[in-house]
Design a protein around this nucleic acid. Structure first.
Ligand SMILES: [Zn+2]
Ligand SMILES: [Zn+2]
Ligand SMILES: [Zn+2]
Ligand SMILES: [Zn+2]
Lengths: 128, 128
DNA sequence: CGATGCATGTTATACCATTACGAACCCGAG
DNA sequence: CTCGGGTTCGTAATGGTATAACATGCATCG
């Protein structure tokens, strides 16, 4: 049956809008921006966001309750984010497969890591 | 003047409740638990949580929108958290002063890191 | 005393996210 | 073709998280 590689209309709208933004956007930011395109209710945005996350095309920024388009090359592997508290810019960076001190701790506790969140808050080069 | 080492009544109530819990508690969990002690509105809980965070006695778990008591020895340095998605237990672990790959990235971009969030989601030893 | 600072109390509001239910649509099995 | 099942879409309602605005009490200090 082949994968479902194409996006639905709503997913496409949300994804396009995120790729055009330097900052993370909240679901309600997206809703406000896309009302003219036919999106009317939060649940529609959240549905699109959920699928896009499943597909690995976007990431959720936990400390902002907001979302960014993925800028990985190849959209693979885990990522961390650097968030400028002054201008709001979010930059994604690849996480190495193993962060030694963390892996070591997890192995010692027999904790099985399924997802890793790394978010740096601070000042970007132009705002420091 | 002397230091502000003591907690106010509300801060003490919130802190004691958090130290007694294995899991992270939301502000509203705390509110419900402490209504009998005189806390009545969310803002009172958030005020206490804010001060406790300033004092380094508790931490916010971004991916849960909830809070845990600090279990550092000495309450100093940065921390990461391992969160079991099955039982909810949260374990704090010390972050080394320098996570080499991340530091390297930040240095290369001239990003000044002011706060680091590291949260591992997965299964604890007893739930895996 | 009056001024300052800080903790507190109360109400209201804003912001974030999901549940529930039904209609429309696509597509493959029979 | 017709009947499913699966996915998307629309709408309404609700639940959970966080802050704004403003008033009051109370200690300290000049
Ligand atoms: Zn990515
Ligand atoms: Zn900046
Ligand atoms: Zn700690
Ligand atoms: Zn567990």
């Amino acid at each position: 049956m082949i994968g479902k590689s194409v996006l639905t209309r709503h997913q496409e709208l949300v994804y396009r809008h995120l790729t055009g933004s330097e900052k993370a956007l909240s679901a309600y930011d997206l809703l406000d921006a896309l009302r003219g395109e036919g999106l009317r209710a939060p649940v529609q945005v959240y549905r699109a966001l959920g699928k896009l996350i499943d597909h690995g095309l976007i990431h959720r920024i936990e400390s902002l309750n907001a979302f960014v388009a993925c800028t990985h090359e190849g959209h693979q592997g885990a990522a961390g984010f650097a968030i400028c508290d002054a201008c709001g810019e979010v930059e994604e960076f690849p996480l190495p497969d193993h962060l030694a001190p963390i892996d070591h701790w997890a192995a010692g506790r027999a904790f099985r890591v399924e997802h890793t969140t790394v978010e740096l808050r601070g000042r970007c080069q132009t705002c420091r």
